[in-house]
Amino acid sequence: MAAARGAAAVRHGSKLFSPPIQRLIDELSKLPGVGPKTAQRLTFHLLRLPPEEVLPLARALEEAKERIGFCRKCFNLTEEEECELCRDPRRDPSLICVVEEPSDIISVERTHEYRGRYHVLGGALSPIDGVGPDRLRMEELFRRVREEEVREVIVATNPTMSGEATALYIAEELRPEVEAGKLRVTRPAAGLPMGGDLEYADEVTLSRALAGRRDV
């Protein structure tokens, strides 16, 4: 879609802007959530700024792209071979929290409740879009579970159809270890958001909340 938007921008703007400006608009419009108009606005904003304010942005982009890669263990973003979370000896290596994207790690970390390690899949299974397990870091996860002494895998994929499909697939693949009593595969509880009103809760969330009720 971004490419199509870019192409549209070229069609409409090719005679209006000089090639360097058009290139910048095209590149910016490839970013998620940035359409041709926003890209144009950002371009003119950047061009209005003095060089000492714009060049650090260009350098930061280059530096991040050059220096940041994936952790060889959990596939989080890192400057080193292994990320800070995998190297931290205070974290419990027998717990693995599986997430779709590196940004999900930040959300879990913000809770200050979880002291285990992570595994980033790089997306979720989507039968409808043809995204199968081979497109995700599934094998790497199963290898970790079998080679390291893991006692619990928490599948924290999104509570969407793709996230649920991913959780079901992981649970199915790890069933032998679970049945042998070596491992637990769990999923974070689904329910009502704190501060929300019961009145506005949707039926799916509410039924999940009721199914997962606990003693008080």
Partner: peptide, 13 residues
């Protein structure tokens, strides 16, 4: 998380 559309609009619903 607080969208009132919430989980209502998942495929197959």
């Amino acid at each position: 998380t607080k969208s009132r559309l919430g989980g209502r609009l998942e495929p197959f619903s």
